[in-house]
Computed example of a mutant assay.
Amino acid sequence: MSQVWFITGSSRGLGRGLAEAVLMAGHKLVATARNPAQLDDLKQRYGDQVLAVALDVTDEQSAGQAVKGAVERFGRLDVLVNNAGYGDVGSIEDTDMANFRAQIETNLFGTIIVTKAALPVMREQGAGHIVQVSSVGGRIGPAGRAPYAAAKWGVEGFSEVLSREVGPLGVKVTIVEPGGFRTDFAGTSTTLREGRPEYDETVGKMARYQRDYDGRQPGDPAKAAAAIIHLASLDNPPLRLPLGSDAIRAIEQNDAQRAAEHAAWRDLSVSTDFDAGNGAGHFPWEAR
């Protein structure tokens, strides 16, 4: 069944690959970019099947107008993919606050802003699927990527809350967590700074790794696009889906280490409760 998709960051990388795959699959698409001229070839190839829209995801008015244009053109909105984002490499100490804010504004607040713009439409429809493009860096804190990881961890928390709120309304949420894919994310889209020598074994190592990794990532963008299109066809999609063998391996290792740490320190954790019988001890979302 044909769906109406809305993809942020459609001009390059994973967003571009997904945009082309969505159109090839016969769906309708609102393709967004800061410079919509970069989407002219899609309009030429797919005509009225695609609507190219200028969008700065950090601008609430721009996001509202883009969603309004989508509904005016296609009558509804079935799948929103918050894909726009970038991440530089540098130490926390050497990353100025303007850079911190810029990455968090795009990666976190951009996701929040576009999601909020689309929510009234999906709530009124009683249906929709919001796909948040997070990262393996949304589950693991890699050295050298503090602003990016802070933003992506924020996306993860925001989206988990979102799923609890809108799930009963018929709106689905999936967080995809890509590892390394052969896009320009690790190339021209990223500024790499090895920084001062004190951080050479952490941040410097990450910057060098990123340079060497570019072009050799295991992830195939076309297969990522196919996986996301498959997710959007499911009645019961997962809340989280790592993408790529490197992502699943790193997340599994990190989760195992976290579980071991919780077990090792459990007695100290629970020692902070009042004496038995003084509290309920359950959160409202816990399974009983």
Rank of each mutant, 00 (worst) to 15 (best):
T8K: 02
G9T: 07
S10Y: 08
R12N: 05
G13E: 00
L14H: 06
G15S: 00
L18Y: 00
M24H: 02
M24R: 01
A25N: 07
K28R: 10
P36C: 02
K43W: 06
Q44R: 05
R45T: 04
L55S: 07
D56I: 12
D56K: 03
D59S: 05
D59H: 08
E72F: 05
R73C: 15
R73H: 14
R73S: 14
L80P: 06
Y86E: 03
G87P: 02
V89P: 08
G90C: 11
A102K: 15
Q103M: 15
Q103P: 13
E105P: 03
T106L: 03
T106E: 03
L108A: 13
G110E: 11
I112P: 08
A117H: 15
A117F: 15
A117K: 11
A118T: 05
Q125N: 12
A127T: 04
A127H: 09
G128Q: 13
I130C: 15
Q132F: 08
Q132G: 10
V133E: 12
G141A: 01
A143L: 12
R145Y: 13
R145W: 14
A151C: 13
G157T: 08
E160T: 06
L162G: 04
R164Y: 01
R164E: 07
E165I: 06
V166Y: 10
P168C: 06
G170M: 07
G170P: 05
V171I: 09
V176L: 05
E177Q: 04
G179C: 10
D184E: 12
A186R: 15
A186S: 15
G187I: 03
T190E: 10
R193I: 08
R196G: 08
Y199G: 06
V203A: 13
K205V: 01
M206F: 03
D214V: 06
D220Q: 03
A224M: 11
A225T: 09
A227C: 04
L231G: 03
D235V: 08
N236H: 01
P238G: 01
L239A: 03
R240H: 11
D246N: 04
R249W: 00
A250D: 10
I251H: 14
E252Q: 06
D255F: 09
Q257D: 07
E261F: 14
H262I: 08
W265L: 10
D267G: 11
F274S: 07
D275W: 07
D275K: 14
A276R: 05
A276D: 05
N278W: 10
N278P: 00
G279Y: 03
F283T: 01
P284M: 04
